[in-house]
Design a binder for these strands. Structure first.
Lengths: 162, 162
DNA sequence: CTAAATAGGGATATCCATTGTCCGTAATAG
DNA sequence: CTATTACGGACAATGGATATCCCTATTTAG
């Protein structure tokens, strides 16, 4: 069970978009070139972000993507769920219902106890992702990256932003 | 990203094995019949548990599986990892290395900041699974299930245990 | 006004993990 | 000795992830 690589791509793209000057847009082409990713396929991940309302788009030359909200209000969970979906990682198939000892009229009062534990763990995962924003990520990167690389990257992006 | 159904099967099988009298064994055939699962394929999940050392096996008639440890010492994480593997749910492909602004001799001092967040969430998920034992599950079931169904199930299992 | 660039989406192909079945082998209980 | 079991290898079917291609509507730049 491994997350799609599109999740990784979307997170990195959002990290870049978080550093974009107010009101500017960055195209799929630029994002693909920056990360060394296939443009057409990356486009699908960005469309997922768009459909989830996390980013804003414009058409035409100088068009592309920008964040729809402030980096403070965009969490890892928002992005992960936009790409990967919101369905829980554990699916209960109610195999307890096959217990041959069950009376036919038996009706369960609560969800399967095993599923509840698995769903609790799933929720812990989501809670952790919900607790980190793009702004947090930006602060970490600003602190860790060599200042020259940081500045060069900002310039590179601004150069290509429409 | 959804866990294999084998994980669900393994958890339910372990729940049954936890209620098995000391020293007795329960066969794949009985476990498959009880849960309404394909015997041959369920066998693969049980083999995973065996390879991970979570269960003990014997051959021949009246052979089968029993827990290798006490239910108090067997966690959900043990079972999930035995079937699903221990690899993290997020794989970092180091796409940050494609940043065209990077000097060629650049060497990263730390893992990718995005990956660290994702791995943190993965660890929170595992921690939650690690905190629940088969004994906990047994207590929950004993409390929730109708006493007659609980007893009938115990009898059914004991009837088929070798 | 025109041409170029863009997001969006549908169709399609490829790859790979999951799911599932089948069979042969070694070990064991009765 | 015979039936039953776990185990493991081989194999097929299915479905999702990955990737590419092409068409459309829209919008900006010139």
């Amino acid at each position: 069970m491994i997350l799609k690589s599109q999740v990784e791509w979307a997170l990195h793209c959002c990290a870049i978009l978080a550093g974009l000057p107010e009101g500017r847009y960055l195209s799929t082409k630029a994002l693909a070139e920056f990360h060394g990713l296939p443009k057409e396929y990356l486009s699908k991940a960005l469309q997922s972000l768009s459909q989830a309302g996390l980013v804003h788009t414009t058409l035409g030359p100088s068009g592309g993507y920008r964040l729809a909200r402030s980096p403070e209000e965009l969490t890892f969970l928002d992005i992960v769920e936009a790409v990967e979906g919101k369905t829980r990682t554990f699916v209960c198939n109610e195999i307890r219902a096959n217990n041959p000892c069950r009376p036919k009229d038996h009706c369960d009062s609560a969800p399967c106890a095993i599923a509840r534990v698995m769903w609790g763990a799933d929720e812990a995962w989501r809670q952790k992702l919900r607790s980190v924003t793009l702004a947090d990520l930006g602060r970490t990167l600003a602190q860790e990256l060599p200042p020259s690389l940081w500045q060069d990257t900002i310039d590179w992006v601004e150069d290509r932003a429409g």
